[in-house]
Design a binder for these strands. Structure first.
Lengths: 190, 190
DNA sequence: CTAGCCATGTAATCCGTTACATGATTGG
DNA sequence: CCAATCATGTAACGGATTACATGGCTAG
């Protein structure tokens, strides 16, 4: 009974979460995702606005129009008590492992089909990407540590940043290792 | 001009790649994905069969029906020279960073909304998942190393396995670190 | 004046999984 | 006889991005 339908609903709770942080407009949420959650989350307007409307319909959020002189009218959203409740319930459900696809690894696994230099380029490009990611994470982190008024969520945000750093550093090490292996393969070939 | 449409096309090349490895049926490809690529790729029948048909239409693969006594009839596919060419071209295009979403990190970032024990459980569960993944990767690896007849792709498959291991080990370390941080937070709270 | 930001929203499209439908053979 | 495995495929659904459409204000 009650077939165990697997619905993702990620966007729904991301939006609800941002409401719980005090973000009030769809626009602000998009900016927040781009600027702060970029390393582990993404969200598009096409998801955000319909989701906000739906949350209001379900009574998990409220909406009020704000008319301001000299600025565009905007819709201000706020989370309701039942919204907070549903968010808390979702937070404690262990996320089921999401099947991830890595285009890089797929390409690498077929590396035998191309010249070894091409494979190495693939890895070197990826290594550079990781380095860029690391410096980007560093920027977010220092921005987050700087001002005295610690946000209540700050300690948790730091944990997510540390995760990003740990992964990227592991990837860097793997790139180095893999470049060596590719070099050996290219050598044997001759 | 020529608007830069971003199409993913991942499944297309995954299938083409498996054809280039000598896999001949859609069924076999599904099994191969489940058994060997599971740690970095997934593919469903709903993708595989239509893709195979499309590849034949485009001349990148051929199809022949094989009738066997005592076994179900099956369609045998094979890659064509132009298929190999297109695959090789795709292989050297650097994959653009795919926006990834981590439900775990999203939940953790909102950890302030639930009791600290709940957060710790989230991380402990995740740590166990990583450990399971690691032993699964170990199984694949030993199966891959065992028999003398080295597959031509074996060295590359080992690289992807090392990637999985590197990431999972980094995640384990992060879990440990994060549990400590959560413990401290819970302590301060009192 | 014009580029860029604030702000909202929708429609088309793509990508992918799940569930369903079918059916033969083999091994216990 | 029944379950598992081999084997193929489609339809429905869901989730997410992209592109489009609109428009006012501000700073250079």
């Amino acid at each position: 009974m009650s077939s165990p339908k697997k619905r993702r609903l990620g966007s729904r709770y991301a939006v609800l979460g941002m409401l719980s942080m005090g973000l009030k407009t769809g626009y602000a949420m998009k900016k927040h995702v781009e600027g702060n959650l970029g390393h582990y989350w993404s969200e598009s307007y096409g998801q955000i606005y319909p989701t906000l409307r739906q949350l209001v319909e379900e009574g998990l959020a409220t909406c009020s129009e704000e008319k301001r002189k000299g600025k565009p009218t905007r819709n201000l959203y706020a989370i309701t008590p039942s919204g907070r409740k549903e968010l808390r319930e979702w937070l404690v459900v262990p996320p089921e492992p999401q099947p991830q696809r890595s285009e890089l690894l797929l390409k690498l696994s077929l590396g035998d089909r191309v010249a070894s230099g091409k494979c190495q380029k693939l890895i070197r490009d990826y290594r550079e990407q990781c380095e860029r990611d690391l410096s980007y994470l560093g920027e977010i982190e220092s921005a987050l540590r700087e001002p005295p008024p610690k946000h209540r969520d700050q300690p948790y945000w730091l944990m997510t940043l540390r995760h990003g750093r740990a992964i990227r550093e592991a990837e860097l090490a793997w790139c180095t290792e893999t470049l060596e292996h590719l070099g050996q393969l290219a050598g044997e070939e001759k």
